[in-house]
């Protein structure tokens, strides 16, 4: 029991007639990075607001570090580090003033906890006198993370921290999260980016207020039931409508410039697809068998959910 950091059971939240959370349950162990992966509207923000004591669940209950999110909200508010999805610092205050303010309201000593944010804050320290509103997206997120960390929280809850941030800053941000995890802080991250899932220790795939699957990224990928092929062509759209007519195909989806085709049985292989395409006068394509990514799994779960 002492290994569990966050625990949710049967959480339900409705906004009027909209069902934001439809009874989700999960466990987050101490000191791990747990990712809630899902598109906008999956219920991630609602879930995080319940965990940060900002919203009351309509049903179910949740605890963070053993404290009940409804009854013990006063205590929880001292041990949580929360970074909302929207940039929520004071844009008219400078970087330094923001940090001082958040240290102040948590009665934290900046110099005492500086080691926690050193790696992050050092990068924005040259702009200490700049107003927060004038920072770039990546730097804003670093500042927000610094402010969320300055009181040395036991659990860090980050709602889409990398949305709207460039690829380099995203990578840096994740490197920081992994360092923080090594300091023993439990981290909950919500993100719509599937490629960030593999950086988490464990993930939950969310859609329409449900958790479709959860586990380590490897477990989720291993559970993918189909053989998967990637086809590259300069006539992607024609190829897509053609391949969907082939028997023995489970699904075909666009993935960037490529098409990912999953087979409905083990008999469908490279050769069969190749023959099918050639028999329809399709010559210019590159075909290979690939191992699935989280996104393939996500789409597969989504389809299963829709079918059922």
């Amino acid at each position: 029991m002492s290994d569990i950091s966050v625990y949710g059971e049967g959480l339900v939240k409705n906004y009027g007639k909209t069902e934001a959370l439809r009874g989700i349950s999960f466990l987050v162990n101490k000191g791990e990075i747990f990712g809630f992966i899902g598109p906008d509207g999956a219920g991630k923000t609602t879930l995080f607001r319940i965990l940060t004591t900002l919203l009351l669940p309509d049903a179910g209950h949740a605890t963070v570090e053993g404290f009940h999110v409804v009854k013990d909200f006063r205590h929880l508010r001292t041990i949580l580090g929360y970074m909302p999805g929207r940039f929520s610092l004071y844009q008219d205050l400078t970087v330094e003033e923001n940090l001082k303010f958040f240290a102040g309201i948590f009665k934290a000593d900046i110099s005492e906890n500086y080691y926690l944010i050193k790696d992050i804050y050092d990068q924005i320290a040259p702009f200490a006198k700049r107003r927060a509103g004038k920072l770039s997206g990546g730097m804003k997120q670093k500042l927000a993370l610094s402010c969320a960390l300055i009181h040395k929280p036991e659990v860090l809850i980050l709602d889409e921290p990398t949305t709207g941030v460039d690829a380099v800053s995203r990578r840096e941000f994740w490197e920081m999260l992994i360092r923080l995890k090594n300091q023993g802080i439990t981290i909950l991250v919500a993100t719509p980016y599937m490629d960030e899932a593999i950086l988490c220790d464990r993930v939950a795939l969310m859609q329409h207020g449900n958790i479709m699957a959860s586990g380590t990224p490897d477990q989720i990928i291993a559970s993918y039931p189909h053989r998967l092929f990637s086809i590259k062509s300069d006539q992607t759209l024609e190829l897509l409508s053609l391949i969907r007519q082939m028997t023995g195909i489970h699904s075909a989806e666009m993935f960037g410039g490529n098409i990912h085709v999953s087979a409905s049985n083990a008999l469908t292989g490279i050769k069969e697809i190749e023959d099918f395409l050639r028999s329809h006068d399709f010559r210019h394509f590159e075909l290979e068998e690939i191992s699935p990514g989280i996104e393939d799994c996500f789409i597969d779960f989504m389809k299963m959910n829709q079918a059922s």
Binding site: T52, T53, L54, R74, R77, T78, L80, Y82, P84, R86, F87, S88, L89, Y90, Q91, F102, I105, F106, K107, C147
Partner: peptide, 13 residues
């Protein structure tokens, strides 16, 4: 409006 109340609320204030 700016969402900073969200952060203020999740603090011991």
């Amino acid at each position: 409006e700016l969402g900073t109340m969200e952060v203020l609320l999740v603090s011991p204030l």
